[in-house]
């Protein structure tokens, strides 16, 4: 599904990612962990075509086509920040991005998508929503065009346990029933171990590897200094 080959990213002299290789299969939920500054978000941004890699390449669905617009059709990107129009209601936010989406969705479909995530404040303005609700809407918008692959950058940061569980349950549900492929950044090891089928660890610090291995997780370590 997602194939990454020799991917590197440098900011001037600084090597953030160095010849990274990994493969994610369809329907997998893969956790991406690592200390701050390890390059998790940079990797996700490259895969989401927000940033350009310095070298290497990646493909989705074995298609060599690397045009950003074509890749973006296949991915749903959930940013770390809450990227919503605060003056709009849930319905208006969903409708706004549906109007710009590749895929046409009816109001009923949009509403069902929100309800599936236990987001039922359909006519409530975003600024009146709880942190958990905002996070759910943040994710729901990324799923409007029904992408086969989903990149999530710490989507549950700062929210209550119940909302975290509802989000995790929903992601597990769409991965198992709809074969969605998910790459998920989090610092929450409980979340990673309960939801992910496998983990990719970036960085040279074995801290995360040790914890996750002890929990019985399948961990792939991508060292920044691999040659």
């Amino acid at each position: 599904m997602l194939n990454v080959r020799d991917l590197s990213k440098n900011y001037g002299e600084k090597h953030v990612l160095h010849k990274i290789n990994f493969h994610i299969h369809k329907g997998e939920i893969v956790g991406l962990v690592g200390e701050n500054g390890a390059g998790k978000s940079t990797l996700l941004h490259i895969l989401a075509t927000i940033e350009k890699q310095s070298s290497g390449h990646f493909s989705i669905d074995e298609e060599p086509d690397s045009k950003p617009a074509n890749i973006r059709k296949k991915i749903g990107f959930v940013p770390q920040e809450v990227a919503l129009w605060e003056d709009f209601t849930v319905k208006e936010n969903m409708t706004f991005f549906e109007k710009l989406s590749w895929k046409r969705r009816s109001i009923d479909e949009l509403k069902k998508l929100c309800e599936a995530m236990h987001l039922d404040a359909w006519n409530t303005k975003v600024r009146a929503l709880s942190g958990g609700m905002k996070r759910k809407l943040n994710m729901a918008i990324s799923l409007i065009h029904d992408p086969p692959i989903l990149f999530l950058d710490e989507p549950t940061v700062g929210i209550d346990l119940k909302s975290k569980k509802e989000i995790a349950d929903y992601l597990t549900h769409i991965a198992t029933t709809k074969d969605k492929t998910i790459l998920y950044i989090s610092h929450d090891m409980d979340e990673i171990t309960s939801m992910c089928t496998r983990v990719i660890s970036i960085g040279d610090d074995p801290f995360y590897d040790d914890i996750l291995t002890a929990e019985g997780m399948d961990v792939t370590t991508l060292s920044k200094n691999d040659e």
């Binding site: 989401a48 617009a69 973006r72 991915i75 749903g76 990227a83 919503l84 991005f97 989406s101």
Partner: peptide
């Protein structure tokens, strides 16, 4: 400069085109 504008690249429109 609004965070929500960062979603436009993931729609059918290029931000500049939009």
């Amino acid at each position: 400069n609004h965070p929500a504008f960062g979603r436009i690249p993931f729609t059918a429109y290029h931000p500049k085109q939009y």
